[in-house]
């Protein structure tokens, strides 16, 4: 019986044309992209586009699974063993944690891709109710008595840290670089925050669904999405005079991708974000594209405003320690009501 099986296999092998094995389609591959909350819809579209591109280029089928949650929490999950081939998070600080605490990526991860490994950007804007009844035009209006501001807790939300630093940067400019007055300004702003949600999606629920507050500080892409999908003409976007350039970074998780043998495709996945198609998809989901030609095409969607970046605060490590770590400035200026 065993001889018969061996003979049959030998005959079958002989019948195959030379090199048939080499011509077989490459094995299907699955990638896991661990991202933060607001990118869910962006990556649904982008993953489909990349799968088409990759199939056409290599003949290999790729399935990209997505995981979304708070940026810091997602980083902790990866450090704790979630097998992410790539991460696309809200803050460089959270990606740094993969290098510092998880030793999953090299410390110079941010230099491996163009534009600080941030293929698209966003900024922080205001979403107000239709007609802007409280006449909110700029950051200074957020500390007026009677103005109710919705923003999440910067201790727990990556997006809220951008909000906080944008307000701080505005105040530094307004008060000539006086840090004391900047602190008083941000403290006054947070006194106008009636509910401190733990994340950006919770803050959106507070503002949109529960009808609380006069203004919500939020990612530009989230504000535009809310306008398009949830607001239905009930909200307006207010661009402040100055805001922060938010650079959500991306990187391959070296240790996982090397172990799973997915590094080449994981790298291609992130590189393709910089392609014209990748940039167009990002822009259509309200992220500011890096590529000039795509930016020009969507120029009307993204008004030009004065932007400063995280380097103004000495980078994320310094900003985190100074403002958001336990005992930092936020702990001193914010008193829960």
């Amino acid at each position: 019986m065993r001889r018969s099986i061996v003979a049959a296999l030998a005959a079958l092998t002989a019948a195959l044309p030379p090199g048939a094995a080499a011509q077989q389609a490459p094995k299907d591959v699955v990638l896991l992209n661990v991202s933060y909350d607001p990118t869910r819809e962006l990556y649904q579209d982008y993953n489909a586009a990349f799968a088409r591109y990759w199939k056409a280029k290599t003949g290999q089928s790729v399935t990209i699974r997505q995981s979304h949650g708070g940026s810091g929490k997602q980083a902790r999950s990866v450090i704790d063993g979630l097998q992410a081939d790539v991460v696309t998070l809200a803050l460089a600080y959270d990606v740094d944690a993969l290098a510092e605490r998880g030793r999953l990526i090299p410390r110079n991860w941010q230099t491996r891709l163009p534009d600080n490994s941030a293929p698209y950007t966003s900024t922080i804007v205001f979403l107000v109710r239709k007609g802007n009844p409280k006449r909110i035009r700029d950051w200074g209006d957020l500390v007026r008595p009677g103005v109710s501001v919705v923003t999440p807790n910067p201790k727990t939300s990556g997006g809220a840290r951008w909000n906080y630093l944008a307000a701080w940067g505005y105040a530094l400019r307004k008060f000539g670089g006086d840090e004391g007055k900047a602190q008083q300004f941000v403290a006054a702003l947070f006194r106008n925050v009636p509910v401190l949600d733990s994340g950006a999606r919770g803050a959106t629920t507070t503002f949109i669904e529960r009808g609380i507050g006069d203004v919500m500080i939020n990612w530009e892409n989230e504000a535009l999405l809310a306008m398009q999908e949830m607001g239905k003409g009930q909200y307006e976007i207010v661009m402040p005079s100055v805001s922060i350039l938010a650079e959500p970074p991306v990187t391959v998780v070296d240790r996982v991708a090397n172990k799973r043998g997915t590094r080449p495709i994981a790298e291609a996945y992130l590189h393709y974000l910089y392609s014209e198609e990748g940039q167009t998809i990002a822009a259509s989901h309200f992220y500011r594209p890096r590529m000039a030609s795509v930016a020009a095409k969507f120029a009307s969607r993204f008004p030009r405003i004065q932007l400063f970046d995280i380097r103004e605060f000495g980078g994320w490590q310094v900003a985190q320690k100074k403002h958001f770590d336990d005992g930092g400035i936020f702990d001193r200026l914010y008193q829960p009501r």
């Binding site: 209006d141 007026r144 008595p145």
Partner: peptide, 14 residues
């Protein structure tokens, strides 16, 4: 009296 803020707003709480 209405609270004051470091901003230059002179609005009074209604």
């Amino acid at each position: 009296p209405a609270p004051t803020t470091p901003d230059d707003s002179t609005a009074v709480r209604p």
